[in-house]
Design a protein around this nucleic acid. Structure first.
Length: 185
DNA sequence: CGGATTTGACCTGCGC
DNA sequence: GCGCAGGTCAAATCCG
């Protein structure tokens, strides 16, 4: 499953301009070889290339048709399009080891999530049912976490969140290219 | 004690 | 102009 599917995704993006395969692809490939139960797909996510998801056999399953040729569309020209790679991973854990060291710098609650989950506010007195309800109402949410590569001067950022449509999937979005090798080397 | 994480505040862009 | 949401900052806190 995984690695074949993943390589299909890789080749799918290989022809795109504005898009360069980075070390994460190779590291994820290695990681998948060791953990075959996980399903992983990859898709491009940039203003010029909204979402091109890759199916099991590598075919493009995006409703927008085939992979973009990368030419900039009508999106705001002033906004620089950084290289961005997103991984969709079927996993219970949200923080996957991709061979790089990350420093968390922010967290956001995703509003109106169709798949609400409880936050980690666990110290709720269960005897107080009313309060329990109130607290849950306030804190039901999904979180989006923001990370920066902890290597000084490296511009790479990563964003981790649950898939809105299927909470069993974790979407990890990488932005930029590392200017160094991973710590696993 | 130093590095990592948490979390509320702040900034910015966008739609109405 | 205003409100909202996404993204980032930075002080406080945690933890090895």
């Amino acid at each position: 499953m995984s690695s074949t599917n993943f390589r299909a995704a890789e080749s799918d993006f290989a022809g795109q301009t504005n898009f360069e395969l980075s070390d994460e692809f190779l590291l994820f490939n290695d990681w998948l070889e060791g953990d075959p139960p996980l399903y992983v797909s990859a898709f491009a996510d940039s203003p010029a290339n909204p979402i091109n998801e890759v199916g099991e056999s590598g075919e493009n399953i995006s409703p927008n048709g085939g992979p973009s040729n990368g030419e900039s569309g009508s999106i705001k020209e002033k906004k620089e399009v950084k290289e961005r790679v997103a991984f969709k991973t079927n996993s219970d854990i949200e923080i996957l080891d991709d061979g790089f060291k990350w420093r968390k710098y922010g967290k956001k609650k995703v509003k109106n999530s169709p798949n609400p989950r409880y936050s980690n506010k666990t110290s709720i007195p269960t005897s107080q049912i009313h309060m329990f309800y109130v607290v849950l109402t306030i804190f039901i949410c999904d979180n989006r976490n923001y990370f920066r590569c902890s290597v000084g001067g490296c511009p790479v950022k990563k964003r981790v969140e649950r898939d809105k449509d299927d909470p069993s999937y974790v979407i990890t979005t990488y932005e930029g290219v590392h200017n160094h090798q991973s710590h696993s080397y």
